[in-house]
Design a protein around this nucleic acid. Structure first.
Lengths: 250, 250
DNA sequence: GTCTCGCATTGATTTGTGTCAATAGGCCCG
DNA sequence: CGGGCCTATTGACACAAATCAATGCGAGAC
């Protein structure tokens, strides 16, 4: 799903603001924060939302930037990350369609965001959203639900980063992608990665070489197959889950 | 670690419910989610809040438990953590007075919580809180703000766990404690730890031995002093900040 | 007072993962 | 079609932190 979009990239401006969008036709509305708005409120929402298209490998915002907008990913994959002085990088997540980008509170962005593939975003001014929210308590309720989900996700990832071995980390990553794919209607058995080995490594706290070695080993053990570098088939997914779930099964 | 608490539990009442509390006299109300309530609403709040006292080393709830309540720490220190099957443990944080325990959404707790010191908690039924919230949009707004702050904190910790060296991790931990102490009105130069070396290690993704070695080295280098095992004086705090802030200074 | 137990510290050694380096494959471009 | 570039893979080696082990210290029990 990643590479095909490259055609759109063409020679056009890296960031195209396409103006107001038709939220009532939006296919992912039910998965985004916009789900908080009923049909009646959609007109108000459409008035404050802009749609933006970005090429692959372009920045959305940097850590420390004033946070004037929040975004919703409409299509494509983004990486959000924190950088250290010497170039080390911790990737915090890979938001895809339906995911929120940027927090609804705070003055500035606490992480950087960069596209991995061509991406379509919805952008809303936070000031305007705040005005809207005063009339719709359901919005803050929805945002709260989203933030709580993200917090639980970060805490699971803290466990991966702080306490799991390299094979457990890679398995956790693959299972996570698989689950997300299933949630979006896929089978979860064949994954299309939109990020490099290096990005995977920066997400799970390893190096690209170690990720590569572990993937090779998992292939030898028959848990996965890698027909192309950016495609992973999960052959023995229960075994992968066992490896990933060093977690106590509550 | 859940096991040791079992001994103490027998002797004295492990959990004393002290009944409704007087929120208008509460000294930490401005730091807790209860700050969302104005003086007028305090009576309603007092009606649904219970105060609980716990000994050190007693569990508040376990990961997977049905989340009927959320809690606010009133006094003392708690640890929240996730356990792996083989006993590995990742501590997610050390909530202290003013901090929220448990999420306002979701069916069950996503982590376990255990006291490190004697603790006083406020407990609110989530169902009752939901009823209250329908009348006060400020509550969800406040909860949203709290969750966003916690999310930003987890993401900073992900960077510590995924990308920092042992000395950087220990320095990050000390600076974080110092900042929290300053925020609560202290000088931030002399810290009283309420957790063991082992707990520190489980928080920053090391072993107790490594934490001990790093602390010894920092002492030799004159950055800190350790008059007693549970007390740390930060002598050259700028140097500690430099070490911790491998972060790009935005 | 002495015994015991848990925790912190320190040392010796091992090991998992990082680092450095070389090779190979895919893709775009001229 | 060949050249350059980027990424993935693989190997050899180094090193940071884990593991294993021993000692010491302080608090509570009796």
């Amino acid at each position: 799903m990643a590479a095909d979009g490259a055609t759109q990239r063409a020679a056009c401006g890296q960031r195209r603001v396409e103006g107001s969008s038709r939220c009532r036709d939006c296919e992912i509305r039910s998965r985004a924060f916009c789900a908080a708005f009923g049909d009646a409120e959609l007109t108000a929402l459409e008035a404050v939302i802009e749609t933006i298209s970005l090429n692959a490998n372009s920045e959305v915002f940097f850590e420390g930037d004033t946070a004037d907008y929040i975004y919703n990913v409409n299509a494509g994959t983004v990486k959000i990350f924190k950088s250290l002085q010497d170039g080390r990088c911790q990737i915090l997540g890979f938001p895809v369609e339906g995911d929120l980008l940027g927090y609804p509170v705070g003055d500035s962005h606490t992480y950087s965001a960069e596209t991995l593939t061509p991406v379509r975003l919805c952008r809303v001014s936070r000031a305007r959203l705040r005005d809207l929210a005063s009339g719709f308590p359901a919005l803050e309720s929805k945002l709260l639900e989203i933030m709580a989900g993200e917090l639980a996700g970060s805490q699971a990832q803290m466990t991966v980063l702080g306490r799991k071995s390299a094979p457990e980390r890679v398995a956790s990553f693959l299972v996570q992608l698989s689950d997300k794919s299933i949630a979006n209607g896929g089978t979860g058995a064949s994954l299309s990665l939109s990020m490099s080995r290096h990005d995977v490594a920066d997400f799970i706290g390893l190096t690209a070489e170690t990720v590569s070695r572990v993937l090779t080993q998992l292939t030898r053990d028959g848990l996965i197959a890698i027909p192309q570098p950016y495609r992973v088939d999960l052959i023995r997914i229960e075994a992968l889950r066992d490896l990933a779930a060093a977690e106590a099964s509550i």
